[in-house]
Design a protein around this nucleic acid. Sequence first.
DNA 1: ATGAAAGCGCTAACAT
DNA 2: ATGTTAGCGCTTTCAT
Lengths: 329, 329
Amino acid sequence: MATIHQVAKQAGVSVATVSRVLNGQNSVTAKTRIKVEDAIKKLNYEPSLLGRNLRNSESRLLLVLIPNISNPFYSEIINGIENTAIELDYNILLCETDTNAERENIYFDLVRKKMADGIISMDPAVNTDTLIRLAENHAIIQCSEYAVDSGIPYVTIDNAEAAYRAVKYLIKIGHQQIALINSDKKYLYARQRQLGYQKALEESNMELEDSLIVHTQGLDFSYGQQAMKKIFMQKERPTAVFAVSDMLAIGALKEIHNQGLKVPEDIAIIGFDKIAFSNMTHPTLTTISQPMYEMGEAAADMLVKKIQGEEVESLILDHELVIRESTLG
Amino acid sequence: MATIHQVAKQAGVSVATVSRVLNGQNSVTAKTRIKVEDAIKKLNYEPSLLGRNLRNSESRLLLVLIPNISNPFYSEIINGIENTAIELDYNILLCETDTNAERENIYFDLVRKKMADGIISMDPAVNTDTLIRLAENHAIIQCSEYAVDSGIPYVTIDNAEAAYRAVKYLIKIGHQQIALINSDKKYLYARQRQLGYQKALEESNMELEDSLIVHTQGLDFSYGQQAMKKIFMQKERPTAVFAVSDMLAIGALKEIHNQGLKVPEDIAIIGFDKIAFSNMTHPTLTTISQPMYEMGEAAADMLVKKIQGEEVESLILDHELVIRESTLG
DNA sequence: ATGAAAGCGCTAACAT
DNA sequence: ATGTTAGCGCTTTCAT
C-alpha cells in the first residue's frame, strides 16, 4: 500500500504536487501531471480516505436511521437516498434501530464522533428530545415521520389529507361502516391519519365508533391479521377497512380470506404506501401512493445542503389515491 | 468540539493519559482517571473516530454489496449482518449495485481507499475477476452466491439439493408436468437449482421439456408474471411450477389467478426463500426456507475474522422444504 | 504511573 | 508551477 510520499518520491515531485494532481487542480503542468500519474500507476497507489477525511474533518458518510429494513416502504426511500448520495459523493451508513433506544444511541454516537456527517431519521419511534439536542451541533433531516416545531427540517406527505381522501372515497362508493386499522397513537403519522379518517366520517355525519378503530403494536403483516381478527369479534361487521399501511392491509386481507369472506364484495379494503407487493395480492390493493423514491432523494439533497451550511426548507410532497380491485364493485 | 488536547489541558495531564483513560487501560491511577473523566464531561468531549481510525489504519466499516435492497431476501440477511457487526463494534456501509459494474466499482474503491475494512458480497452479478483480484489485498466474503474455486470464503446453502427436494416432492404428490421458472443461467445458483430440478425429473424417468423451462431477466414479481404468461402459451399446461424465488413464484401466482385458474387445484406452485410475504399470499406458498438471518450472522463473523487475519472456512447451511397451501390437495 | 514526541496520510497556506 | 511545512486528532513507543 503506497502512500502519497512514495508517489511523490517516485515521481520526483513534492507531496503537495501529488495532492494537486489527485484533486484535479489545474495549477500543474501537463508534464508534471504525467509524471505523477505514471508514478501512481506504477505504485498502484490509492489515496487513503482515512487521511483525507481527518484532514478535511469530514467522513462523507450519511447515517440513515430506519426502524426495520424488512419494511419495503423504507427500501424504496433508501433507494432514493443512496442514488442521490452517490451523486454527491457521499455514502450511506444504514442503521436499523429496531425501535430500540440503546441501539439508536450507538448510531447517534457515530455522528457525535464524526464518523458520519449527518443523519436522515426515518424512525417514528426516535427519541425526539435527543434528536433535537443533537440537531444543535449536527445536520439532521427527518423523513416521513417528523417532530412538529422542532426546527429539524423534514420531508413528508400530508397524512391527514391522504387518509381523508381514502375514507371519503369509501364513503362515496357507499360504505357506512368503515373500520380503521391504525398503528400506535404515539406516532404522529398515526394521529394525523386518524384525524383524516375522523374528518371524513364527520363530514358525512357518520358516527365514530371506537369499536371499529384498532391500534396495532407493530407494522408486520401479522399485526394486520390480528387487528382484523379483533374487528371480526365485534357485533357488527364493517363493510370496509382502511389500514394505515399496506403491510397491515395485506395482513387484514389474509384474515378476511381465512374467514371465507370476499374482497371487495363482503369487505372493501384500502392500504397506504403503495409498496410493490400491494399490486400482487389477490385482489390487488387500493392504496395511497407515497412518492417514496422522491422522498429519499429530497432528504439526501437537503441533508447534504445542511451539512454544507445552507438553510433548508421542509417539504410536503404529493400523494395519490390508487384505486385497484380491493375497493371495486 | 473539544479535542483530546483540550481535555488533557483541562485535566492537567498529558494527551497520552487521556488516551489511556479513553481506551480503558488500567495503568492509570483512580485519581487521575477521575480528573480526566471530569474534564471529558465538562468539555462535552467526544473522541473523533477520524483521528483514531487514521492512527489505527482501520475504518471499522463493513461494505455490504447487494443487487437490490427492495428484495426481502436480502433484508433478512442484512439484519443478521448488522446485528453481528454491532456486536463486534463494526458498522455497515450498505451498497446497492443494481447489477451495474460502474456502481460496483465505486464501492470497491471504498475498500481500496481504506474507507471500508472488508466486503460481504451478495451480488450474483458481481464481476468475479475483479472480486478475486481485490481479495488478494482485502478481506472479502461471499454470501449466498459465490465463485467456485476462487479462494474467497462463502456462506450459502446446497442449492441443487434444495431444488431437487422441491421437485421430488411435486413428483411424489403426483405431478408429471412440472415447469421451472428460473433466473438467468449466468448465475451459479440458477444453474445449481436447475441441476436439482433435472435430477429429480430424471430419477423419475420424466422427460425434460425445454418448453417448460423459462429464464427471467430479473427477480421482480413482474418477471414471474411474464414467465407464467410464457408457460401458458405452450400447447400443454403444466400441473405444477417450481420457481427459484418467492418473488417470481408470487408473480406467477398472480398470473395463474388472472387466467381464472386455481392454485393448487389446477396448478401447484413452489417458491424459494421463504420471505415473509410468502405466508400472506392466497393460497400460502410452499417454499424452500433459507436461513437468511443466520447466513448474515455467519458472513459478518467470517469477515471480521478475516479482517483480523484469521483463516476462515466456507459454510453450507441447512435449508428446509416448507409445505403450505400452494401444493396441497 | 505518566509524559514527550513521533507519526498515521492527507491538504492547504505560505513561500519561492 | 512547485516545494516546504504545519497540522487534522488520535495511539503508542520510549523515557522517566
